[in-house]
Lab assay of single mutants.
Amino acid sequence: MDVFMKGLSKAKEGVVAAAEKTKQGVAEAAGKTKEGVLYVGSKTKEGVVHGVATVAEKTKEQVTNVGGAVVTGVTAVAQKTVEGAGSIAAATGFVKKDQLGKNEEGAPQEGILEDMPVDPDNEAYEMPSEEGYQDYEPEA
Rank of each mutant, 00 (worst) to 15 (best):
Q99T: 10
Q62T: 07
S9R: 14
G25Q: 15
H50K: 05
V95N: 12
E130G: 08
E57M: 13
S129W: 12
Y125R: 03
S129P: 09
T22L: 09
G106W: 12
A19C: 06
G51C: 13
Y39C: 06
V66L: 08
V66K: 05
T59E: 01
N122K: 05
D121P: 09
F94H: 07
P138M: 12
V48G: 01
M5G: 02
A89R: 10
G25M: 15
S9I: 11
K6L: 05
D135C: 12
A76T: 11
G132Q: 15
P108H: 05
G36Y: 15
F4T: 00
A90W: 12
T72C: 06
Y39F: 13
G47I: 06
S9A: 04
V40N: 01
G31N: 15
F4I: 02
E105Y: 08
K80R: 07
N103V: 10
G25K: 15
L100K: 02
Q79G: 06
D98S: 14
A69Q: 11
N122D: 11
G31V: 05
E114R: 08
P117C: 10
E28T: 07
V55W: 11
G132I: 13
E126A: 04
M116L: 01
V118D: 12
T75Y: 14
G36E: 04
E123T: 11
P117G: 07
K80I: 10
P108S: 14
K34A: 10
K6D: 05
Q99N: 07
L8A: 02
E13T: 10
T59H: 01
V77W: 15
Y39A: 02
E57K: 14
A140S: 13
V3C: 09
T59C: 14
Y125W: 09
T64R: 12
G73I: 13
E83M: 11
Q79V: 03
V26Q: 00
K12Q: 01
V40P: 00
A29H: 03
D98V: 07
A140D: 11
M116E: 06
A17H: 01
K23L: 07
E131T: 10
A85E: 04
A11C: 00
K34I: 05
E130F: 07
E131Y: 12
V49D: 01
A53V: 14
Q62W: 09
K80W: 15
F4Y: 13
K43Y: 14
E137R: 10
A17R: 15
P120M: 10
G84K: 10
T92P: 03
Q62L: 08
V37L: 07
V3A: 05
E110W: 13
Y125E: 12
Y133P: 08
G67R: 02
L8Y: 09
K6I: 08
S87A: 13
T54I: 15
A19D: 00
K6C: 06
D135E: 11
E131I: 13
G47M: 12
K12S: 06
Q134K: 15
H50L: 15
K58I: 14
V52N: 00
P138Y: 08
G31C: 12
E61I: 11
A29P: 00
V49I: 14
S129E: 15
L38Q: 03
